[in-house]
Structures are given as C-alpha cells and as structure tokens.
Design a protein around this nucleic acid. Structure first.
Lengths: 241, 241
DNA sequence: CCCAGTTTTCGCCTTACAATCGAAAACGTG
DNA sequence: CACGTTTTCGATTGTAAGGCGAAAACTGGG
C-alpha cells in the first residue's frame, strides 16, 4: 500500500514547529502523527498530500510543498506493509489556521526528543524535513514560504534564526539576499516598536515562482569572457531550463 | 502498484552515458527503458533497486546509489496504475560490466533528444538524474563514484567536464577539491603519455563514506570567535550529526 | 648530450561573495 | 533638545573560486 505524509513546518513564537495530530486508535494510539493518508487511484502524490492536508488545515495557508523522500522499510508500520512518500510543507508565520481538536503545533526540537512521542517513523521524517529546510534556506529563496508577503529585515532575521537554529546577522542577511536579487524593497516602512527606533523598511521576496537552485560560487561553468563565438565546445552547458 | 527504477550513469568515451534496455513486449515494445521492476514485499526500495539492477549489471560496479524522486502521474504507464521510486546510480569510468543482449549504454544527451526513444516517462527520469548529478558534483565529493580509486587531476577534469557538460579548469578543480580536503595525494605518479610530458601525480578521494553536504559560502552559522561561553542562544545549532 | 615540444603543477593576481564592525539615519521618550 | 533604540548603510576583512603564466618534469630528435 502507498501513503503520503507531510511534515508541515511553521515558525511560531520564535520556534520552528510542526503540525501533528494525536492518534485515537491502535496502532500507536495516543502518539502523534503527521497528516496524510492513502494514495488515491486517480491522483499523483502531490495532489494526494494536498487533498489530505485539507482535512487538517486550510491548504491555502501552505505556501510551499515539495517531495522529501520515500520511506519503505517493510516493518515501518505494523499490520500492513506501507510505503510512504514524505513531503515538506511550509506555512508563513502570519497564518494561524483553525485546527481540528486532535491536531496541534509542536516545536520541532521537542518532537525530535520524544515530547510528544511520535508515531511509527514520523520522528525521522520530521528530522529530514527540518534538515531539508535548513539546507535550502541557505541557498534558495525558500524564505518566502515562511515569511509574510511583506516583512522587515529584522522580522526575517528572526524567522531565519528560528528555522536555522543559530543566530543570523540582519546586516548580512539583508545584503546576501539583496545581491541575489530575491529581496525587493516595497517602499513602505513598518511602524517602530514601543521603544521607538528607526522605522524598518518593508521588503518582499522576488517572484514566488522563482527558485534559486544555481550554486553560487561552486564550480560554475566558465563565463564566456566576451563570447568569442565560433566553435562550440562539448555539450551545451544550459540545455534545459 | 509500486516499482523502482534506476538511472545508472557512467562516463564512457568522454560522454555521460546511461544504462538502458530495449523492451521486447508491449507496451512500448522496442523502446528503451531503465532497469528496475516491482517492489518486493519484504524489501525496502533501495534493496529492491539493487536486487533488480543485478539482473543487468554487476552491482559491485555501482559505486553510489541515491533516491531521486517519486513519479506518480496516474497515467504514467498504460494498463495499470504504477508509482515509481526513481534512483540515481553511478559507476566509475574504469568499470566495464558485461551486459545482457538487450542492454546497452547510451549517451544521455542523445537519449534526451529521442535517440534511442525511451519508454514511458523514463526520459524525464534520466533528465532528473543528470541534473542531480551535475548539481551534486559541484558541492559534494560525489566525484569519487565516477572516478577510479586512483586518478590524475587531468583524468578527473575530463570526467567532470563530461558529466557537467562544460569545460573545467584542471588548475581550479585541483585547488577547489584540495581545499575542501577531499583530494588526497597518494604519492605515486602516472606514467606520461606517448607525447611525453611531466608525469601526473596520483590522487584519491578522501573517505568514501564522507559526504560534503555543508554549504560552502552561504549563510553559514557564525563561527564562535573564541567560545565566549556562558549564555547559550536559542536552539542548539548542531544538535544531531 | 642538449634542445624543442608536451604535459602537469604551482604561484600570483583578480574577482566574487560572505562576515564583521562601526557610523549614520530615523524614530520615540523624558 | 539630549538620550536611548532600532534600522540601515558603508568600509574592511576574510575566504573561496577563476584566470594566467612561469616553472617543473618528462619524451623524443638532432
């Protein structure tokens, strides 16, 4: 049998949290599981996970979904052999969807340490989801999926710090993202906090659909100095988009 | 139903090639397919793909295998709904396994352009495999899986050029890999070619098990200047290995 | 035996990007 | 209007990668 599961992550209260629901029936009754379920006959895995996610949250709040990994140990679930395609889902920090009674957000750090206890191999899946998010935040513009449409550099810094698990310099974040062209100033400013201070400029991420997947400074193809034109070498470096 | 498939890549004759076998029966008879088959009841996907690969090549030649992606369009195969977990496999360039009569290596570039015609969605899978290899060659030490145990920088340069599809500077490759600590001189030298020339030093890759997955120059955590010790901030930056 | 040709290797320079630091700008409050 | 606060910007440093050319180490031929 084939099922799909999603580790849906969101930064709330300064912590990276994951959406879990508490199983009411055996096996693993009482333990907390990822949303998901059986793959339908006429849907692909991505469609399926979105459909099943809709039972737990408003999927319009889920800004990004991507395939994570297949888990297929024959004994990963008791009773019946089940292969699962796991997904990573991201929800912007401003969203606060209404949840069913059995469903709640839990800090990822806690869940990975057994509080609350997770069902089956779902703890491993959460860990993989967190690792993937951390890696991709560094070299893609995936931040747009965690941030509101408009944000200040400071608030973005807090999001990155919570997701990455280490301090992030606002100065550096600002310029790194700006140089990559993913950080666009909107022109507006946010009102300062109760202690005053200079009002922060508002930014948005460039082009949601745009993915930064190019390596930045790692063995890139040689820049044709000024296109000497003539002989073309080997295969075309950028054949497909 | 669930199946597994592997895009097994190797650099031969200066080109990146993929292992394909020609289907004898419908559907898609005559077209070329990736090795693989149905997932067994008591094996995980990785075990399964290695088992089925053994029907086409000596799996001892396959130096690296990793999960690629799940393809699950309901109509990706006629007749019966089949979900596939696709894998990327890499074979060192020195290996030349004996192949069954229906099986042969084909340049990836050709296969992606329809020569030979590929079965089902296998062309797409080959493309994803090639893209993954290209990306990972740049920021991991995955090269060890394409190269022989010992090699010269020049031969490695040719491998990288074939796999990446663009020229690679031997000078730069040498120093980039050396700085990352993945290129270890063995002390030996290779005999010069027929035209003479300085004998090339032999190298090997550091620690096969070692994966370079850390980002190199992208939003890394702040280096604790000299461990000021005292307050610990937020979550632990490196909780798990 | 020396010299031209070849191939590899190494050092130096430039460019690109990230991290750090500090100053300046823009706001509140007393 | 001084003061603390917060954000933003510029300058500097450090590290990594690309490019170029000289030096090293070999072969083969006069």
């Amino acid at each position: 049998m084939h099922e799909v599961l999603a580790a849906v992550l969101q930064v709330r209260e300064g912590q990276l949290q994951v959406l879990l629901w508490q199983r009411a029936i055996e096996p693993d009754a009482g333990r907390w599981a990822l949303p998901g379920g059986r793959l339908g006959d006429s849907e692909d895995v991505q469609t399926s996970v979105l459909r099943q996610l809709a039972e737990k949250v408003d999927v319009r709040d889920v800004a990004h979904v991507e395939q994570l990994e297949v888990f297929s140990a024959p004994d990963r679930m008791p009773h019946r052999r089940t292969v699962v395609t796991a997904f990573l889902g991201l929800v912007p920090c401003v969203a606060d969807p209404v949840l069913p009674d059995d469903t709640a957000w839990h800090p990822v750090t806690d869940a990975l340490q057994g509080s609350p206890p997770t069902a089956f191999d779902h703890g491993l899946i959460v860990r993989r989801a967190r690792d993937r998010l951390r890696a991709k935040l560094s070299y893609t513009n995936l931040g747009f999926a965690l941030a509101p449409p408009e944000f200040t550099v400071s608030s973005l810094r807090e999001l990155y710090a919570a997701a990455l698990g280490h301090r992030v310099s606002a100065t550096n974040l600002q310029r790194v993202l700006a140089r990559r062209g993913v950080l666009i100033p909107t022109g507006g400013t946010a009102p300062p906090g109760p202690a005053g201070g200079r009002p922060a400029a508002l930014y948005r991420f460039a082009e949601r659909g745009m993915r930064i997947t190019d390596p930045f400074a790692v063995l890139r193809p040689p820049e044709p100095p000024h296109a000497p034109e003539g002989v073309v070498h080997l295969a075309d470096p950028r054949a497909a988009p």
